[in-house]
């Protein structure tokens, strides 16, 4: 008896997933970057980008090492997504490369309280 209830419940859940646009795609849509390939293997980046950025941040801030390979500035510029107005969207938009995934994972990003989340427009 109990088992049949469970099965019914599960069936409803599964049906629910496919029901309505909110559940249509359970995964984040990650915008494509401009460059050919990322500075590290994408799988590796997905798991470790925060450590790479933190390492680079301390090197640059404290020591003055300014290599570009792991710099946040380069990430932001290569992964910039243009909005409807043709300008790159800021981190406030869900289309922003960082936001698309961080919103899905519900992880707050502190970087862009200070760092620019878009490449600089030509002056």
């Amino acid at each position: 008896m109990k088992a049949s209830w469970l099965i019914a419940l599960l069936a409803m859940l599964v049906a629910g997933l496919g029901w309505g646009p909110a559940f249509a795609d359970p995964f984040p849509t990650i915008p494509k970057a401009k460059g050919e390939r990322c500075v590290e293997d994408p799988q590796y980046m997905r798991r470790n980008h925060m450590d790479i950025l933190r390492h680079q941040r301390d090197d640059t801030m404290r020591l003055g090492i300014r290599t570009t390979k792991h710099s946040l500035k380069e990430c932001v510029s290569c992964h910039a997504v243009d909005g409807k107005d043709g300008k790159p969207v800021t981190v406030k938009s869900s289309q922003h490369f960082c936001s698309s995934c961080h919103e899905f994972a519900a992880v707050d990003i502190d970087c862009f309280a200070c760092h620019a989340s878009t490449p600089e427009a030509k002056r």
């Binding site: 309280a113 620019a116 490449p119």
Partner: peptide
């Protein structure tokens, strides 16, 4: 809160 920081010069509220 700040917006439009220069990429080479990060700055933000509270620091």
């Amino acid at each position: 809160s700040l917006e439009n920081q220069r990429p080479h010069q990060p700055r933000g509220k509270g620091c």
